[in-house]
Amino acid sequence: MSHEPLASHRIALALTLGLAMITRILPLGEGFAPFNPDWVALVLLYWILPVPERIGILWAWGVGLMVDALTGRLLGQHALAYGVMAYLALLMRARLTLLPLFMQSLWVLGLLLVESLLVLWTQRQELPAAMQLQYWYPALTGALIWPLVLFILHGLTGVRHRP
């Protein structure tokens, strides 16, 4: 595992998270908007898996608060969801990083679904009204795009996932 110096690590972390937040609220037009994956969650997962000392549950929680403010949610919705997602990812980290890419994407799908479910649960409005199939699309595209995220972020940051 090639370790970058700490300072550049931190810059890369901030940059990628900022970029993810921008992509999160980018106006993509009618056709693509429902499929826009939760980039912030993907980037968080990326940073959780290789370097757990840098970014853990509390980090994820803080980032979640920012996403809440960004997307006009009640403060705490994404914080809770990201926190739990980070916890699960950290628990399974050892196994996850060794899995082949396809299996890893499936696990990522599971994590993203848990995250979406938690956001849905903390929503005020009635559950059935919000329960459209559309709601789960971003988790699906997120999992599909996970290999790409790994590839791009790996190129950007030079942090390797596999030993």
Partner: peptide, 21 residues
């Protein structure tokens, strides 16, 4: 430490949510 952090995160989330609500 992981479990403790999770509990902290859960409690903090619920507090913030309650305040916001």
């Amino acid at each position: 430490a992981l479990h403790v952090k999770l509990v902290i995160c859960l409690v903090a989330s619920l507090i913030v949510l309650a305040i916001e609500n």
